[in-house]
Design a protein around this nucleic acid. Structure first.
Lengths: 148, 148
DNA sequence: CTAGGTGCAAACTATTTGCAGGCGG
DNA sequence: CCGCCTGCAAATAGTTTGCACCTAG
């Protein structure tokens, strides 16, 4: 992710463009997989001289609320975040349990579900969580993958 | 949920049929909505005389791992659990953000997604998370609903 | 009887908060 | 220069663990 791109996103969110925010977006943008708050922290510390872990939490939370980054659900007790290169269009993610790689999943049958809920019980859908877990192509093909 | 039913489920999981386990299943079975560990604890304490919170955590975790109860994802920091009356067939849940009611969602377009992932990248889907959030029919119709 | 189940107390750890100072617009 | 941003230290709270005792099968 280019600096101008992260700056543009931050401006659009009416957040100040600060080195910390940009560095966190750059850090996540460099990865093909998700990271936890402390993993992000370890990676950007050397680049920034110093940064507090609470700042990392605050920024990750802001970006996740804004929808710029996605929360990945795992059985560990941590929150994990992924910055998708594809910021356009509604889609979801396929998460490899072996190598932590995240791939896009375009298909999402949720429009039908929303219609069903409205029709059947008069309810209204405001959001949904969809995450596909599995083993990615390269891990299936004998690459053992880096086990967590 | 009847005692024989909970006993049968526990036997099938090769877990001993104990009063604590049955009471937790009964407690969740009585609800139309999800509960957190401490909420379950508060409700079953008077019925059992005494029970430790760690026991509640252990049992909820066992049941969730076994697929008997479903974890509900919320922005609070807690794990929330729901025991679905419908234990048959693959389905998901519609969670009302206003009154916490949970309804079944039969439709799930995931077979197609699995096929796509296998075809495109050679990956394999092992599990998925799908939860629909919104406002249920009765909350939409002016019933303000018990706000959390 | 014996392995699994449970209570209790204590530990753990991810995450949050308060406040003083810093810096982007 | 104003108000958001950040560091630091400390608190918070949900969840887990260790171990001795208990009970279902």
């Amino acid at each position: 992710m280019e600096p101008e791109q992260s700056a543009a996103i931050l401006k659009q969110l009416k957040l100040k463009v600060t080195p910390r925010r940009q560095e966190i977006m750059n850090c996540l943008g460099r990865e093909q997989s998700y990271l936890s708050a402390d993993e992000v922290w370890e990676r950007i510390k050397p680049r920034l001289g110093s940064i507090g872990l609470p700042t990392v939490y605050r920024i990750l939370d802001e970006l996740a609320e804004a929808g710029v980054i996605t929360r990945i659900f795992l059985s560990d007790r941590k929150q994990n975040y992924f910055l998708c290169a594809n910021q356009e269009g509604h889609h979801h993610h396929f998460v490899c349990e072996s190598c932590r790689r995240v791939e896009d999943v375009e298909q999402c049958g949720l429009e039908g579900v929303s219609r069903d809920i409205a029709r059947r019980s008069g309810g209204r859908v405001t959001s949904h969580i969809l995450q596909i877990n599995g083993i990615c192509g390269s891990c299936c093909q004998g690459h053992a993958g880096a086990a967590p």
